[in-house]
């Protein structure tokens, strides 16, 4: 039987300047993803495939996610 290839979401965390790989089955929504990555939702914006989304947005494994820090650099 042919195995289905599992492809995780690519999640770029701007503040850490690195990618993380997370399964959309585990992180169903943006809120759950942030909770899993232990990121405070009041300090970030989440961009899914180039578009800003709210915490209730549902995620797919094919999504490219960017987590932007809202905290000023100074």
């Amino acid at each position: 039987m042919e195995k289905r290839q599992v492809r995780n979401m690519k999640v770029y965390v701007e503040k850490e300047r690195k990618y993380r790989s997370v399964s959309a089955r585990v992180a169903g929504t943006v809120a759950e993803l942030l909770d899993r990555l232990k990121i405070n939702p009041s300090t970030v914006l989440v961009v899914r495939n180039g578009h800003l989304v709210t915490e209730s947005a549902k995620l797919k494994d094919s999504d490219e996610i960017k987590i932007i820090s809202v905290v000023s650099g100074g």
Binding site: S42, T43, L45, V47, L52, I68, V70, V71, S72
Partner: peptide
Amino acid sequence: TEKEVMAYAFL
């Protein structure tokens, strides 16, 4: 809020 400003700047 800082988050609103960032969202505006992004958009």
